[in-house]
């Protein structure tokens, strides 16, 4: 699985960080998302998929392999 984020769309809601703290984090000053892990292991896939679903800005994209 490859994860990408669109920082331009992100509204800093932090829902992704709540669901998959190993993969997503937020910039300190404005809360915009950044990736900690672009190719997370299988144990993290569920949390990442959920993040992509709930992200209120549709800013998280997954390429499942």
């Amino acid at each position: 699985m490859k994860v990408s984020v669109d920082a331009d769309k992100c509204v800093a809601a932090g829902q992704c960080v709540l669901l998959a703290p190993e993969v997503f984090d937020q910039r300190e000053e404005d809360g915009v998302v950044f990736l900690l892990d672009e190719a997370p292991g299988p144990d993290l896939h569920d949390g990442v998929r959920e993040s992509a679903m709930v992200c209120p800005a549709a800013a998280i994209h997954l390429a499942e392999s």
Binding site: A12, G14, Q26, E28, E29, G31
Partner: peptide, 8 residues
């Protein structure tokens, strides 16, 4: 106008 992380 607060760092969003603070709210967590």
């Amino acid at each position: 106008g607060k760092p969003p992380k603070l709210l967590r």
